[in-house]
Nucleic acid binder design. Structure first.
Lengths: 229, 229
DNA sequence: GCAAAAGTGTTAGGTGTACACCCATGA
DNA sequence: TCATGGGTGTACACCTAACACTTTTGC
């Protein structure tokens, strides 16, 4: 053991995942019931202890996969929470990650297995420890990032309509947007590809599907283009 | 010991501080020589191991005070770095914090004691582990925050001139700004207080001192005002 | 008196924002 | 045929960005 290190304290480390989904014009947060003491059966974020053989991101992905059945998801670190008594059991430092997932890929059967549920984001009640704080911090990061990076598409299926996309941004920013201005702005960017078919589930006329063209976006970005809503 | 926890791994945790100062139109980073193996005497950020009886922020403040002699400094978490082999000794997860300090308050004598120095930010060479990454991440956070929050003032003395303030933003964004537009914008916000005296160190005519009025800023913010450059 | 930095207004172009009507379709 | 959501263009206000000369003063 490296000499100077050996005199130092060691700590439990966990990852907690703020998993967000979007459907029907609303943002939803995945919540489960804690499986062990202390605070067993209370509402909690999805979490797990860090293992010796994995990176932080790997641990977060592992937890995410366990609870959603999805891999290769958009994930970002929210921050690290280390107050001495934040965990009522032992001292645990927790690294929070948020994930934006496409609900169509979510494996519903896992809900029962883990005692989990989707809760409307603005109706989330008390969670254990500082988990509500983590959710708040996530929303504030999401709000500042979504305006300048095309994050939103992670919350939508591969094919989506413009009314859907708009309602997503309305949910994120808790505000109404002007339909014409929104369409103009997002289409002018040239990062959406109109599809030939329509979604008729929300109206009789149907709304054209679009796809986000990531390659085009990456190419544009290299020439100094900035996404901005 | 709480039953389920006891089966879990524990980890070393450190904090690393990205300490930034501003003078003469340039941003500077505080760098020191590592005091122990591995990589002893290599360039490193200021860091320290987390102790059992302190919060993460306390640890960061402790390290900051040790190396600068300053307390009550603007500090924010940058992120947490946990790759398995990031530390070449043992596995250590590190939480990075950046601090913006007023160089006039800095205790120069501590440089010798810790083998530390101020290095021009864009001339910083290789640092140990992932410390260069931490610095990069800090700059990117600083750039996005400084445009919408009055962070800059933390890097200046209590009394500063408008040319100084402008050159600070020019250093942060690596760009030239128009003098008239800059002055108009910042003065219109109504968060600066012109002083009666001048700084004559940079010109014969001298430039008026200003102070940042935090109370006024806080009051404005409550009425929906947003700082933005 | 001159060099060197501080200070000061105006204009044109572009961007954001507000706003109302027709279209397509299934029931 | 009618109710419902999808789709479209314009005008005005505002903000941004570009631009040049005068002032002060120590040397």
């Amino acid at each position: 053991m490296t000499p100077f290190y050996i005199e130092q304290e060691k700590f439990f480390l966990s990852v907690d995942c703020i998993i967000l989904g979007f459907t029907n014009g609303k943002l939803y947060l995945l919540i489960s019931k804690r499986k062990f003491e202390p605070l067993k059966n209370q509402d909690t974020l999805m979490g797990g202890f860090l293992r010796a053989n994995e990176d932080l991101e790997e641990a977060a992905s592992r937890v995410l996969y366990e609870y959603t059945g999805i891999r290769d998801v958009y994930m970002e670190q929210v921050g690290t929470y280390g107050s001495i008594h934040r965990d009522e059991g032992e001292r645990v430092i927790s690294v929070a990650y948020y994930a934006l997932i496409d609900l169509e890929l979510f494996d519903e059967t896992l809900c029962k297995r883990h005692n989990a549920r989707w809760e409307e984001l603005d109706k989330v009640g008390p969670l254990i420890f500082d988990h509500n704080q983590m959710v708040e911090d996530t929303i504030s990061i999401l709000r500042s990032k979504a305006a300048v990076q095309p994050l939103g598409f992670n919350l939508l299926p591969e094919k989506f309509t413009l009314p859907q996309l708009q309602s997503l941004y309305e949910a994120i920013y808790q505000t109404k947007l002007d339909k014409r201005n929104f369409r103009k702005k997002i289409l002018e960017m040239g990062i959406l590809e109109k599809q030939g078919d329509k979604d008729k589930s929300a109206s009789k006329r149907g709304a054209f599907y679009y796809k986000f063209n990531k390659d085009k976006y990456d190419r544009l970005r290299e020439t100094g283009f900035f996404f901005s809503l």
